[in-house]
Design a protein around this nucleic acid. Structure first.
Length: 271
DNA sequence: AATCCCTTCAACCGCCGTCTC
DNA sequence: TGAGACGGCGGTTGAAGGGAT
């Protein structure tokens, strides 16, 4: 178990931390967060790791503004489910509960302000009743019910596999360690402000491109849009066994680490 | 150009449900 | 069956960025 003491880091994540987390999530899947927090060497709690992954690092996430149909859907779903943000998020592929929650807060604040303005300007008319955006929406809208709902007994939207992946892929491809290494190196480059990444999108893009070259595209093990767990052939037990990775000039993801994490992983499997 | 205000969103906190022993 | 560990969820906060003044 990860000790939550004064040595735990808090606050914004660094790119280095992000890489460590992404790497370990792909190694072990996104289930055992305390374990990942432990073996990754991140001075973060399992909870913090999970949140970072779910809300920011997951490759299936959309970025940017909500599309009009998404906004509409949020309204509809909120009228149906209330503040069950995670439930709403499951109907909006690529959006997180946190994102929707934030959107709703902003949205409702705006609405409240508009409402206030409207009622003030029309205060002379007592019969006027302002129908809220949500109340005017039919709650049995078939578009909602036809949306895929990934229930918790199944793999979550964010699940990359990990544990199962390990057993499935053992001993297949051994040539895929370049992309993360390269990407990791570029992160170290970025520290001096030359050719660094701006976002995780860039990172994933780079990784994707590299692995496509090898005809083994890296993808999240679980396709967030399919509801079906898709075992990836790219990340495997031997993924990093032959080369060390560098961050800021330090070897970090090398044999030693992998053997260590493998031991700990085995221990984790047996408990 | 400086300051203030507002908006956005990443991250934390605390509670609760589930799982495991 | 009960206790502890852990993950998930919703509420809240605070930093950062951008626009207005």
């Amino acid at each position: 178990m990860v000790q939550e003491d004064e040595t735990m880091r808090k606050g914004p994540w660094t790119e280095h931390e992000d890489y460590q987390l992404v790497f370990h999530v792909h190694m072990f899947g996104d289930r055992r967060w305390d374990f990942i927090a432990n073996v990754s060497g991140l001075k973060r709690t399992g909870k913090s790791c999970r949140l970072r992954w779910v809300n920011y690092l997951h490759p299936g996430l959309k970025r940017g503004k909500m599309a009009p149909h998404e906004e509409r859907l949020v309204l509809e779903l909120h009228s149906k489910f209330g503040n069950r943000w995670s439930k709403i998020a499951r109907k909006l592929p690529g959006r997180t509960d946190n994102e929707i929650k934030n959107y709703w807060r902003t949205h409702m604040r705006k609405k409240a302000q508009e409402k206030k303005r409207t009622t003030l300007s029309r205060s002379s008319s007592p019969s006027f009743s302002h129908s809220s955006s949500s109340s005017s929406i039919c709650t049995s809208n078939p578009t909602i019910d036809s949306m895929p709902m990934i229930e918790t007994k199944e793999r979550s939207f964010y699940d990359t596999g990990g544990v199962e992946m390990f057993s499935v892929m053992k001993g297949k491809n051994k040539n895929n360690n370049n992309s993360f290494k390269k990407a990791a190196t570029r992160v170290s480059d970025s520290s001096d402000g030359h050719e660094g990444y701006c976002s995780m999108d860039d990172i994933w893009k780079d990784i994707d491109l590299d692995l496509l070259e090898d005809d083994h595209s890296i993808k999240p093990v679980f396709d967030p849009y399919s509801e079906i767990a898709v075992p990836s052939l790219t990340w495997e037990y031997n993924y990093c066994s032959s080369t060390s990775w560098t961050f800021n000039g330090q070897e970090e993801f090398g044999k030693d680490m992998i053997s260590l994490t493998s031991q700990q992983f085995s221990a984790g499997l047996t408990d």
